[in-house]
């Protein structure tokens, strides 16, 4: 991560457009992930119950153990790579902000909780479904804030 070594990233002609591009694509990923989750796995209580446990009345089969583990495995990989990169950029650009650590902790903890809550909902108790929904929205919202604040902070002094 070369951007962690540059003294003033806001005035670096080579790295500034690259970071802008990365942040823009992260923003697109987060927004797209909402839509993909909504249309495939589900975002709200009833839709998620149908996916995880099936619905006899609507002839919906529950998701298999293998398919759920595959989904979790893929999500973990994308989340860890996305959030590590985003938090490194955010920490670099907003190092003087008081809320920087709070946002990093919020996004990381809620993302980890999303994975754990979904696994526990499927394997242990459906009572944790709401915890999954809350943590899902929390990490997405916090990550969106981090992207927007980073973009603002990077382009505020437009001397490049």
């Amino acid at each position: 991560m070369r951007f962690t070594l540059i003294k003033d990233i806001k005035r670096d002609n080579t790295m500034k457009p690259i970071i802008n591009g990365l942040l823009l694509f992260t923003l697109l990923y987060l927004v797209s992930d909402f839509f993909v989750s909504y249309h495939s796995f589900g975002l709200f209580s009833q839709q998620l119950k149908n996916t995880l446990f099936g619905n006899m009345e609507e002839f919906i089969e529950p998701i298999s153990k293998g398919a759920l583990l595959e989904y979790l495995h893929t999500q973990i990989f994308f989340m860890m790579m996305l959030l590590l990169t985003l938090s490194a950029i955010f920490a670099r650009l907003c190092s003087k902000k008081r809320y920087m650590l709070t946002l990093i902790n919020t996004v990381m903890l809620s993302a980890i909780l999303t994975i754990i809550a979904l696994a526990f909902t499927y394997f242990l108790t459906p009572l944790l479904l709401n915890l999954y929904i809350i943590s899902y929205f929390t990490w997405h919202t916090a990550a969106l804030f981090m992207v927007l604040i980073s973009l603002w902070s990077l382009n505020r002094d437009s001397s490049v």
């Binding site: 495995h73 490194a88 990093i104 990381m108 903890l109 980890i112």
Partner: peptide, 26 residues
């Protein structure tokens, strides 16, 4: 700022643990 990187790496390690666990279960 160094503290923020430490936190990020620590959380990355937690994600890595979950990734290894999920791969074994899978």
């Amino acid at each position: 700022m160094i503290q923020a990187y430490k936190y990020s790496i620590l959380y990355f390690l937690l994600f890595s643990l979950l990734l290894l666990l999920s791969s074994a279960l899978l």
